[in-house]
Design a protein around this nucleic acid. Structure first.
Lengths: 102, 102
DNA sequence: TCCATAAATCGAAATATCTCGATATCAATG
DNA sequence: CATTGATATCGAGATATTTCGATTTATGGA
């Protein structure tokens, strides 16, 4: 848990929005045939919703992954991203511990 | 509660450190004669501990104040800063609500 | 009123972040 | 193995943040 990296990753409204969207698969188009059973959302769907360039979103997802907020899983040519709830919970706890008085 | 501004204010290790220091008055030199009853710590003390320039610390304290993390109270030529525990708690709650799944 | 001290504001240089288009990589398929 | 489609990486321009020293403002005291 690198608090520094986590905070700077969250210091961007689009990245926070992506984490929000990823709470619910139904924020994105239905899975393509053959992907129905896979968890997570591919980059193209996230890009479409965020309306930023492909490279920017790929970069953002890399940052979210490095910070531990999402898990990436490659299946064929697609990378599926999903939230890492445990890691997100750990961050929230760390923020509490750092900010709130003993 | 402007989450945007709060997060960007916390996106700096020195500002977070200052909030940490302000948890306990005894992290700073004893109050000057006549200031014993006043809550909070003056800018000069914070500057001394942070080892950054006076203007930088004044700026940081302004940001922390705008974000609602500290309360400033002027007494004579000194400005005393102290944590705003309610506001800090509100921020932590907002982070929880934004990040954790329903 | 003049001076000294504390803090705030200003202007600027160095560094970091954002965001893009172009290019590279990697996997599937004919 | 050449092509296509998905994603990752690269290089760069625009913008934002960090941090400073210099200046300004506010206050209290001689």
């Amino acid at each position: 848990m690198d608090l520094e990296k986590s905070i700077s990753t969250l210091n961007n409204p689009v990245r926070r929005q992506i984490l929000e969207w990823l709470k619910d698969r139904s924020n994105f188009p239905p899975a393509l045939p053959g992907h129905e059973d896979l968890e997570g959302v591919c980059v193209a769907y996230i890009q479409e919703k965020a309306k930023l360039s492909q490279s920017t979103i790929s970069n953002y997802m890399g940052l979210l992954k490095q910070a531990g907020f999402v898990i990436a899983e490659r299946h064929g040519q697609w990378t599926f991203y999903r939230r890492d709830e445990n890691s997100i919970q750990a961050f929230v706890t760390a923020v509490q511990n750092e900010l709130l008085k003993p």
